[in-house]
Each structure stands twice: as structure tokens, then as C-alpha cells.
Amino acid sequence: MRSLQARYTRDRLILIVVIAGTILAALPLTLVLGYALVNGFSSLNWDFFTKGPKPPGELGGGMAPAIVGTLIITGTGLLIATPFGIAAGILLAEYPENKLNPTLRLLSDTLNGMPAVLKGLLAYVLVVKAQGSFSGLSGAVAMAFIMVPIIAKTTESVLKLVPWNIREAGLALGLPRWRVILSLVLPAARAGVVTGLLLATARAAGEAAPLIFTAFGNSLLTYNLLQPMDTLPLRLYAYAISPYEDWHRQAWAAAVVLLGLIVLTSLLARWVTRGR
């Protein structure tokens, strides 16, 4: 039996180790945020949001096509993913007696963890090859593959937060189950469901890997989903590996915008699910 003194000393040592580990864990994010702000914030100007890229080596220009492309591609992806994800969330939360639910939950969670680059590869095989060219549409499909399991998961968990007795009250009125779900349960969980959609969108909007060989990138502004399209992460990547100082500066600015996007959505998510 160790002396009490020794046990306390050990307890304190462990605490120091634990705190050191925590600091180490928080360090990368702090550094990434800090460097992005220092290097990128000053480059966030009007041009960045309104101008297109300049030819290599020329100073100036901005990322307007990439910003528009990000909005179009993630927006389209969200439109595709939403019915599938919400349906899965409804099935998992509202039909607990369904025999297929454990399988669905397992595979949906698995899909959520699968590399995004593979989802892009699937979009490539299914859309790019069929269409014969890179396109914003194929990128949107890849985004949808990323979003679906996230939406399914968040929808399931927010639906489960709705008290069960609301459903019983509805059924006892002689309402059919589908009416209870659509008109009583979903509205009660609306804020949470929307947050889930938002988080899924933010997650997908930051992905570059699955877009390199689907949306491909495009330095010209386009609204046509059937043409190659640019997005912020794609442009960030292209500029980061370029040899031009001015492009590096703009890449950092893009990083600030992407970080701002995720900070904003996560704060919003906290706010919506506050008190839960």
C-alpha cells in the first residue's frame, strides 16, 4: 500500500500530463485558425468576392466563380440528399419496429465514415463517365453522397428528442401515422432537422478531394451544372500548390472564408440545439 502522500503526488502528476495532452490536442486548431487569420484576413477584399481569377503570375483577381460554384454545387447536392437523408432519419426514429433498421443504421454510419474521395469516385463512375465530361452536376452528386448519412444521423437523433407522447396524442385522435409524423413530429423537430442539413452542407462545402475529378474546377464563371465548375476548396488547393505569392495570399483568404463558414454553422447549430 502506497502512502497517501505518494498517491496524491501521483494524482497531481497525472493531472499535469492530462492538461498537457489537452493543450496539445487544441494546439493544431489554434495554430490553423491563427495562421489563416493572419495570412488571409487582409486579403479579404471586395475583389475577392466579385472578380474572377487573373492569368497565372498577374496580381489581383478574386474567387467569384469559385464562390458561386460552391453555392450551386452544395445547394444542388443538398437538394438531392435531403429526401434520402430525412427519409432514413424518419425510418430509424419513427419506425423502431422495422426489421431493417439495424442494418440501415449500420450501413449509414459506415457510409458516413467512408472516405469522401471514394464517394467522388462513385460520382465519377456514375456521372462523369456517363456524361462524357466533368461537370458541376457530378460534383453535386458526390456532395450528396457525403451529406446523406450526416442528414440521416442528425434527423434520427433530433426526431428521437421529440417526446414520444406527442405521437401517442396524435394517434389517439385517430390520425394516421404518416400524418402524425409529417404534421406533428417533424414540425416539433424542425429546428434540429434544419441544423442537420446545415451541418451536412458545411461539411460537404469544405471538401475538395471528391471534386477534383468531378466538378474539376473552372476559372470562368458559369451557372451551367453540365459544365465544369469551380469551388472554393478546389481553388484554394490549386492556388496553394502554385508558385505565385499572390495566389498563396488568395488561398489563405479562401481558407479564412471556409473557416468562417464552419464556425458560423457550428455556432448556429449550438444555438438551435441549446438547452438540450
Binding site: 406527442i166 396524435g170 389517439a172 385522435l173 390520425l175 406533428l184 416539433a188
Partner: peptide, 27 residues
């Protein structure tokens, strides 16, 4: 066969009026 539960369970997203007519409106 209607039912009134042991614990009150109004629909939280609906108004007082909305609750009363929920069963009618939703059919």
C-alpha cells in the same frame, strides 16, 4: 375510441386553437 392521457401532452408547436382542431384539420 378517443383517449385522454395521464400526463397532459399538447402538441408543442401548435397554438391552443391549433391543438383543439388538430384532429379535424389533419384529416
Amino acid at each position: 375510441i378517443g383517449m385522454v392521457f395521464q400526463k397532459p401532452n399538447p402538441f408543442p408547436t401548435l397554438s391552443i386553437y391549433g391543438n383543439v382542431v388538430a384532429g379535424l384539420r389533419l384529416v
